[in-house]
């Protein structure tokens, strides 16, 4: 009878029947994995099985191919710590739904897991500053995820001139940075490179414009490179939770 014990981040929970929850967990050693979690009526189980929470998970099944049963124990209640911050809640939903959408099942992505844990540890910090600097962490996390699944962006030097200064854009074709000089007449077709990602100047008038510019880069590559490669029209759409998150940042 196959079984394992691992650590993971809860990505989604769907109620099934009267007592069960079909739970998706991004595990450290077994990738994105589904399992059956019984005890919907148990308030402890429901409070532990919230998207974004870090859990210790044991999985057991009669056959490897089957969904199997989970037992979980809470390590860190991330969602509970950020309930009062709407932007953080949206970021957490965006992160979980994105991972659920893009990662194949049962394939180990240790870098993605570690980056996600690092982001969750960043998001739970109560920052007294008025600006949400953790948002930079979110964009960098998405860039890291893109790199781990084979669509790495190279933002440190110009793809045309090789210069490490004067970087203004990202080429949608290659995912490489482009300097102002190197862009030439193609500049309008390129994506703006925000300052916090190595750009030479700030994009827009405030910090949040920079974040939106960063998310535009990752959205482009997720949609046009990753999701477009999946031959299914329905899957070629970014998760609604992420769209809502970007819309909220745009309001600032």
């Amino acid at each position: 009878m196959p079984d394992w014990v691992d650590q993971g981040i809860i990505l989604s929970v769907r109620k099934y029947g009267e007592k069960g929850l079909i739970t998706q967990i991004l595990t450290e050693n077994h990738g994105r994995h589904s399992g059956w979690l019984s005890g919907y009526s148990n308030k402890n189980i429901v409070s532990q099985a919230q998207p974004g929470n870090i859990v210790s998970v044991s999985w057991k099944s009669r056959l490897v191919e089957q969904m199997g049963n989970y037992r979980i124990e809470l390590i860190s209640s991330v969602s509970g710590k950020i309930f009062d911050n709407k932007l953080k809640i949206l970021a957490l939903s965006a992160m979980c739904s994105l991972l659920e959408k893009i990662l194949p099942e049962r394939q180990k992505y240790e870098e993605v897991y570690n980056a996600s844990i690092a982001f969750l540890n960043l998001i739970i910090i109560d920052d007294d500053r008025n600006i949400d600097y953790w948002l930079e962490g979110y964009v960098k996390w998405e860039i890291g995820v893109l790199g781990s699944i084979g669509f790495a962006l190279k933002l440190t030097e110009c793809a045309v001139t090789g210069s490490k200064n004067d970087l203004y854009f990202v080429s949608p074709k290659t995912g490489k940075a482009v300097s102002k000089h190197g862009a030439g007449k193609f500049a309008p077709k390129l994506l703006a490179l925000p300052f916090f990602l190595g750009g030479f100047v700030h994009v827009g008038s405030n910090f949040y414009n920079e974040i939106v510019a960063g998310l535009k880069i990752t959205t482009y590559f997720f949609e046009n490179k990753l999701l477009a490669s999946i031959n299914n029209e329905k899957s070629n759409i970014m998760p609604k939770a992420r769209t809502r998150f970007i819309e909220m940042i745009e309001k600032f």
Binding site: S47, N53, L74, S77, S79, G80, K81
Partner: peptide, 10 residues
């Protein structure tokens, strides 16, 4: 859980 205690403290 730590999340509940954190919310209660806040």
């Amino acid at each position: 859980d730590d999340g509940t205690i954190a919310q209660a403290l806040k």
